[in-house]
């Protein structure tokens, strides 16, 4: 099995990548040091490293690298599931207005100072995303449901919330705030904390498990909702479950890391090119590719123009598009 081989190679590669990526940066550290700190922190033995080195690994870099992996895996799987459920190869996690709503929520907190003291940027973004998704669901329901209506409602909500965000930024934000908001809009893992990692990883694990549990039913959507129903899939409940789960996961990830584009749109296609369209194989490979890509993208984002940070969303596209082009070209040659 091709997917089996890919996972057998890819999972160790991901673990190695986490260690290597965490070691890369201004302080002189090795992947072995990273492993040592992790071991010590988990209560297995001591480390001879300085407290500063330990702090860099455990408090600064490791949560960031892990969050990159979680975001990459989660966004990629959300994209794959939405593309199948909505039967739209251009669907991505941000199609349903979630990133636009999150940015409105974040801007409301940062620029307008709404809920300061009770809501942080993360909570504000999550709330905004939830409101936007609610608007999309309501709009789609009013329009009679169905995947086409969901997509249209998502596009409309995205436009609406983007306009509100732009309006607030233009009329109320100072230069410093504008820069901060823009950085967040393009996606960045620079604010990663252990708390975020824990929440994001938990939501991600549950959401991916739910999607994997319905992998074969997702296959049945290939020829549309009627075809899926005639293959025994309870279409409406499944669609509602999967839209809800992917929306929750996307909202969580956007709240902690901003709207990192490209991953959710393109990696599902890359995974299908590698292992075929069956979700049983494609979903795990999609998650793995997403995690690997984002770990390295973030490493590049914080080191390429150091000490300046490049937004992760910018790097994903700059690195990802050429890689995807190579994959497409090789695939064409193979057929």
């Amino acid at each position: 099995m091709r997917a089996g081989v890919l996972l057998a190679v890819g999972i160790p590669a991901l673990i190695a990548s986490l260690a290597v990526a965490t070691a890369i940066g201004p302080a002189d550290l090795s992947p072995g040091d990273v492993a040592e700190v992790v071991r010590a922190r988990l209560g297995f033995g001591d480390t001879g490293l300085s407290r500063i080195a330990q702090g860099i690994v455990w408090d600064l870099r490791l949560p960031r690298t892990l969050l990159a992996a979680v975001c990459g895996a989660g966004l990629a799987v959300c994209g794959a599931v939405l593309q199948s459920v909505l039967r739209n190869p251009l669907a991505d996690p941000f199609l349903l207005g979630i990133s636009a709503g999150a940015s409105t929520g974040a801007v409301a907190v940062v620029v307008l100072g709404l809920g300061v003291g009770t809501l942080g940027l993360t909570a504000g973004a999550f709330l905004g995303a939830a409101v936007a998704f609610g608007v999309v669901v309501a709009l789609a329901a009013v329009a009679g449901g169905g995947p086409g209506r969901v997509v249209l409602a998502g596009v409309a909500a995205t436009q609406l919330f983007s306009a509100v965000t732009s309006y607030v930024v233009i009329t109320s934000a100072d230069a410093e705030q504008t820069r901060g908001v823009l950085f967040w809009l393009l996606g960045s893992l620079s604010r990663a904390r252990w708390g975020d990692v824990g929440v994001a990883a938990a939501v991600c694990a549950v959401a991916i498990a739910v999607c994997l549990a319905r992998a074969n039913d997702l296959d049945a959507f290939a020829f549309g909702a009627d075809a899926a129903a005639s293959l025994g899939v309870a279409v409406r409940p499944l669609r509602a479950t999967l839209l809800g789960v992917t929306a929750l996961l996307t909202a969580t990830l956007v709240a902690v890391a901003g709207a990192i584009g490209f991953v959710g749109l393109v990696l599902p296609h890359a995974a299908r090119l590698l292992v075929g369209p069956g979700h049983r194989a494609a979903l795990p490979v999609t998650a793995l590719l997403g995690a690997l890509l984002l770990v390295w993208v973030d490493t590049l984002a914080r080191t390429a123009a150091a000490p300046l940070e490049v937004p992760a969303g910018v790097v994903t596209a700059l690195v990802g598009v050429p890689a995807f082009a190579v994959l497409l070209a090789r695939r064409r040659a193979a057929v």
Binding site: L212, A213, R214, A215, N216, D217, D219, A220, A222, F223, A227, L231, G232, V233, R280
Partner: peptide, 10 residues
């Protein structure tokens, strides 16, 4: 795909 109703979700 014809095996979907016989296979379960996973």
């Amino acid at each position: 795909l014809g095996r979907v109703p016989h296979r379960g979700g996973w």
